[in-house]
Simulated assay, not measured.
Amino acid sequence: MVRDLCMFSKANKDAEVIWFKIAYRNTVHSEADITSLFAEKGLDMRFAYMDSLEDPARGKYVIFTEVEKGRDVNDVVAELKQMDVVLDVDYGVSRNQVMQSVEFPLSLFGERAIILRARTFVDILRIMNEHVPQAEGLQMHTGIISGTMAVKLLREIIDIDKSNCFDLLKELFMAAGWGMLEYDVDIKNLEGSIRTLDCFISDVYKETEMPACAYISGFFSGFISEVMERTVQVHESQCLSTGHIFCEHIISPVPRGAKTEHVLRRELD
């Protein structure tokens, strides 16, 4: 159940943001029909996004409009509900224009998600590094689990295999705000490297003596291993936090039959 939607907007004392969440039948003209109605009603669309991941036959169109204070939009809602392509309409007023676009509860790949500052994530890593024995291995293990689960969730909405997994990984990192990826990987032999530009961990971590991105190495390992159906090990060879211009993660295969725990315990050296 949607409890509130809000958006990032420069405050305008004479206006307020009204959001619409529209469930629609997914046709070639659904978006155009809905957008046309908003234009006819003179509603200023400041931000919008669409989502049809959960059900290809039905979509969700979320629209943020900025209108003069006190405007009644019940007529707009009534006309939307009368449209053949529209299944349901929910709407509300976001009076405090101080947050980025958020639907509560937030969902990502069909599961509940949260928005977390990069600094908060890095603070957790710092505390682990200072107080937890073998913190690097724990962070890598956590990353492996996350990367493995990411593939399982992606498989529910898109075909993912050896031919497109690295491109999808690149798009996923950029969309999540984690960093920009460049990769040079021999798919057949499972050898190569991934460069992470502006990685959120090393960028916030700043200067350290040791590479800071064990979690990212683990994520790559879990993601690639799950797609390839063969365990690979990934380690960070250089890091932005140690003075390099980018982070680099080296990918290498392990003997067939080896499991993730063998990689973590370094039993393959």
Rank of each mutant, 00 (worst) to 15 (best):
L5P: 00
A11D: 10
N12M: 10
A15C: 15
E16H: 11
W19E: 10
N26G: 01
S36P: 12
E40H: 12
G42A: 11
Y49H: 07
D51G: 05
L53V: 05
P56I: 01
P56E: 02
E66S: 12
E68D: 14
K69D: 03
R71G: 15
D72G: 10
V73C: 09
G92I: 03
Q97V: 08
V98T: 15
A113R: 04
L116E: 14
R119D: 10
R126P: 00
P133W: 14
A135L: 02
L138A: 06
Q139Y: 03
H141Q: 08
G143W: 07
I144T: 01
T148C: 11
T148N: 11
L153K: 06
R155I: 02
D167N: 08
L168C: 12
A175P: 00
G177A: 04
D184F: 14
L190R: 06
R195G: 04
C199T: 01
D203W: 12
K206L: 10
P211M: 06
F219N: 05
F219T: 00
F220H: 03
I224E: 00
V227A: 02
H235L: 06
S241H: 04
G243W: 02
F246H: 15
E248L: 09
H249F: 08
I251C: 13
I251R: 05
R256V: 12
K259V: 03
E261W: 09
R265H: 10
E267I: 09
L268R: 04
D269S: 06
